[in-house]
Design a protein around this nucleic acid. Structure first.
Lengths: 341, 341
DNA sequence: CACTGGCCTGAAAGCGCTCTCACGCTGCCG
DNA sequence: CGGCAGCGTGAGAGCGCTTTCAGGCCAGTG
């Protein structure tokens, strides 16, 4: 392969000349070689190798109007993203699946509403074939913005009511998972079951509350405390719960990190888990569960799978005759029984 | 703005026609308007607004040979990336600074060597103007691969010796920071100072060891244990150290997460921090430090700043007449004194 | 043996933009 | 009053690729 810089990269023209064919034929070979006789295919392939030819992407998208790239929009204004592996794990699933589909990942990080203009402009600019947005919050006007940009998009997580026009989404079966968790506590004979919920601006938190209510019809409202998905907030919520309702014998915590905080407080107060209080978390985050003592019983969700699935759905959306929007997908959860309940 | 889909987006031609000027003039206005008289500038601007014109990126890069995009290569085969906020924080710095420079972020996640071909092909494909690679490991052949691709690149973190041809890098002053940490322990009158190091395949870990040795000439080799930057491994290392050298009265731990593990073991063994054993960490990760008890004294490094700096360096590199490579940059650290030492 | 049809191949037309170059106009100087 | 800068504008080439369309070739058929 000859020495080359960005400036003197060989063009398809050069490949064609070297192979003794027309540019059209060279192009056909580079794009799979359908309808070209074998001898010519071989010649072109050889020329490509000898010259180290790589297609010019810009020229190609100019005519095909496709870019082989997907925007991944992370709407996470808070720093939580750093302490919660959820984010990175989902991103990894997305990255892997995009790679498998030969798509590039353009990362758009939205910190606050001042970024919305930039995002809208970028999407409208037609740089990407599609988009995936995740970590949305309830009051987020992003889904609307995205809808207006007309870029095929899949959301990670059920959007709030603000979303307006329906974009397809992938989500964990938060409600079903929560039901399973609470039912498990009930099956252990627990009578006073509290719930430490996530922040009310996230549908995942709301859905888990709904699941809790599905099982425990009309529970004491004092048994429900809202945290912010951090260990600290879980500890605080647990402390408050114990202060108000000392008789609690079971807690369903909306994520593992908060459950860790709850376990700490229970330990500090001399309550035994699970004998005195049984605890069930949500997520089954390996790093967190490993750190917990006793080992945390929790609702497992496949976060990386969620990321992969969002890409699969998008790919389907892209290949579909315009207009038809595929249905959203809900991923099942399963309860992982360990020591805490 | 008229209703439009990807297919019928207005072109510069349309803008020019509407403004009653030539395409060339319209182009000049869209690109800043230098050398065009005000009345025409206004007319074109108006036409752009009325039509909702957005330049076609592919067409533009086809002629300018620039893409306004930078590849960010994360070489992190391990899952550590999920538990260590280091990664996300650096990425955020990069993202912010790229945005400030009107550059897009194309994320390339390298899981193992089987991805190298894909990365090389992508870089060689000339899709991006430059690249930033971070989280490199000692035996990584990635720097070499990147060098061969001829894409201007900045490394996050000093590369190992494998790197071969010098690519500019940004890094924290790991060695200086380590010196500062150990000197602080010495100044507290500590005589038997251990070091829990990071994995030997990362230069940051090696540099911190070097800093330790800078201050403690020829220390007992048994005082040095290697961890893997996880809390778990820090705990294990601490336990082993105490088993072998019960007289330890100071520990410099190569990152905060491992320090957390070390603190836990010290507490479990009934040793008081800092009275019996003084502990200094490295990173000053907010989430980790907040969780530590007692509050961790640590060497602060500005991880987000590191990310931003890598972009700044790359931008400089891109604007520079080819050939001249700007010097690498080392960011200073500072010791944050809290309760643990 | 002429004709038809199918299969390959190449010529050429763009995709939407930038940028060079030439041209026209204005104002100033000799 | 002719000539000459100098500025602003437009015509047009061309970036590298895909894709249509016409034409050439060959085999099979009447």
């Amino acid at each position: 392969m000859p020495e080359q810089t960005a400036a003197n990269r060989p063009t398809l023209e050069a490949v064609a000349a070297r192979a003794g064919v027309s540019r059209a034929t060279a192009s056909r070979v580079v794009n799979g070689g359908a309808g070209v006789r074998q001898p010519l295919v071989d010649k072109v392939r050889a020329a490509v190798d000898e010259l180290g030819y790589v297609p010019n992407h810009a020229a190609r998208s100019l005519v095909t109007r496709r870019h082989g790239a997907v925007a991944v929009i992370i709407a996470e204004p808070e720093l939580r993203v750093f302490s919660d592996p959820f984010f990175a794990q989902q991103l990894r699933g997305i990255s892997r699946e995009l790679t498998a589909n030969d798509l590039q990942l353009v990362l758009l990080w939205v910190e606050d509403e001042s970024d919305h203009g930039r995002i809208a402009r970028y999407l409208a600019g037609g740089h990407v074939d599609g988009a995936i947005a995740f970590s949305l919050h309830g009051d987020d006007r992003l889904p609307r913005l995205i809808t207006e940009s007309k870029v095929p998009t899949v959301l990670g997580g059920r959007p709030g009511t603000e979303a307006g026009p329906a974009l397809p989404y992938v989500d964990t079966d938060n409600r079903g998972g929560a039901r399973e968790a609470v039912r498990h506590l009930v099956s252990l004979g627990r009578r006073t079951i509290a719930h430490i919920a996530g922040p009310g601006d996230q549908t995942s938190a709301l859905d888990r509350i709904a699941g809790y209510h599905d099982v425990l019809i009309d529970p004491d409202p004092e048994l429900l405390r809202e945290g912010s998905f951090t260990e600290e907030s879980g500890a605080r919520a647990m402390a408050e719960l114990l202060d108000r309702r000392p008789g609690i014998d079971g807690v369903f915590v909306a994520n593992d990190l908060m459950a860790l905080g709850a376990l700490r407080v229970l330990r500090e107060r001399g309550l035994r888990v699970p004998q005195d209080v049984a605890v069930v978390g949500f997520d089954d985050m390996e790093a967190v569960v490993r750190a917990s003592d006793p080992a945390l019983t929790t609702v497992r969700q496949d976060v990386e799978g969620l990321g992969r699935l969002s890409v699969k759905l998008l790919v389907k959306l892209l290949s579909r005759p315009t207009g038809r929007v595929p249905a959203s997908v809900i991923m099942p959860t399963n309860l992982v029984r360990r020591a805490s309940a």
